[in-house]
Simulated scan of single mutants.
Amino acid sequence: MQIYITRSVRFNAAKRIYREDWTPDQNLKVFGQAANANYHGHNFNLWVTFSKKPTPANEDLPFPKALDNVLENEIIAKIDHKNLSLNVDFIKGKLATTDQLCIAIFNLLRPIVNAHENFGLYSVKLQEAEGYLVTYLGV
C-alpha cells in the first residue's frame, strides 16, 4: 500500500523555444510565438507527488518540512522569475518546452527525495497554460 502526497507551487518564468539549426522561418512555422526573439513568459503551476509506504512505525509521520524545503531550494529558487532558456542550469542545452522542463524537474528531485527515509518521488505535473498539463512518472 502507498500513500500519495501532492504539493503544489507556482512560479513565473520566461523562455524561448527556438532551434539554432533551423531558419527563423522554420522556427516560426513550428513553434509560433514561442520562437519570439525577445522570449515570452508564463505563469506555471507545478504539482509534485511524493509516495510514502505506511508502516506501524511511520503511519502518523507528517510530511517532512525537509521535502518542502527541497521544492523551495532546488526548484523554485532556481526557476522563479528566471529565463528558462538562459538562466536555469538543469534545462540548459534543451528546448525549454513544458515536457522537457517537467522531466528535468523530476530528474533533479528524484535522488534528493529518495534519500529521505520512507518517501519517494511518484510524479511531477507541470501546467504552462490553461488546458495544457504535462505529467511525468519517471518510468
Score class of each variant (00 low, 15 high):
41 G>K: 13
51 S>K: 10
5 I>M: 02
26 Q>D: 14
28 L>C: 11
54 P>F: 05
19 R>T: 02
48 V>I: 15
59 E>S: 10
6 T>R: 04
26 Q>N: 08
47 W>V: 01
2 Q>R: 12
14 A>Y: 07
35 A>W: 00
36 N>V: 03
28 L>T: 07
39 Y>C: 09
13 A>K: 06
57 A>D: 13
31 F>Q: 00
53 K>A: 07
17 I>G: 02
12 N>E: 12
54 P>T: 04
28 L>A: 15
2 Q>E: 11
43 N>P: 02
21 D>P: 00
34 A>K: 03
30 V>I: 15
14 A>P: 08
33 Q>M: 11
54 P>G: 03
43 N>M: 02
42 H>N: 13
8 S>D: 10
13 A>W: 01
40 H>F: 07
5 I>H: 08
14 A>S: 15
18 Y>N: 07
30 V>W: 05
17 I>F: 04
17 I>M: 10
9 V>F: 12
43 N>E: 03
12 N>G: 10
52 K>D: 01
24 P>W: 05
46 L>A: 02
20 E>T: 14
30 V>R: 12
46 L>C: 08
51 S>T: 14
9 V>P: 00
53 K>T: 07
18 Y>K: 02
42 H>R: 10
33 Q>P: 13
55 T>W: 02
26 Q>W: 04
38 N>V: 04
12 N>H: 11
37 A>K: 12
35 A>S: 15
16 R>F: 05
52 K>N: 01
4 Y>I: 03
40 H>L: 10
43 N>G: 04
3 I>F: 07
26 Q>L: 12
44 F>K: 06
47 W>K: 15
48 V>W: 00
32 G>H: 06
11 F>N: 03
20 E>M: 09
15 K>G: 04
21 D>C: 05
16 R>T: 06
41 G>F: 11
2 Q>D: 09
8 S>L: 07
31 F>H: 11
36 N>S: 14
8 S>Q: 15
25 D>F: 04
27 N>C: 09
33 Q>D: 14
19 R>M: 07
56 P>L: 09
6 T>P: 00
49 T>G: 09
22 W>Q: 08
20 E>D: 15
36 N>F: 01
29 K>D: 12
56 P>N: 05
28 L>V: 05
18 Y>M: 03
16 R>H: 01
11 F>P: 05
54 P>M: 08
30 V>M: 09
24 P>V: 12
46 L>M: 13
44 F>W: 14
12 N>V: 08
6 T>E: 12
15 K>R: 15
34 A>H: 08
26 Q>A: 09
7 R>V: 12
34 A>C: 15
29 K>N: 12
13 A>G: 07
9 V>Q: 14
20 E>Y: 09
38 N>L: 11
44 F>N: 05
29 K>P: 00
26 Q>K: 14
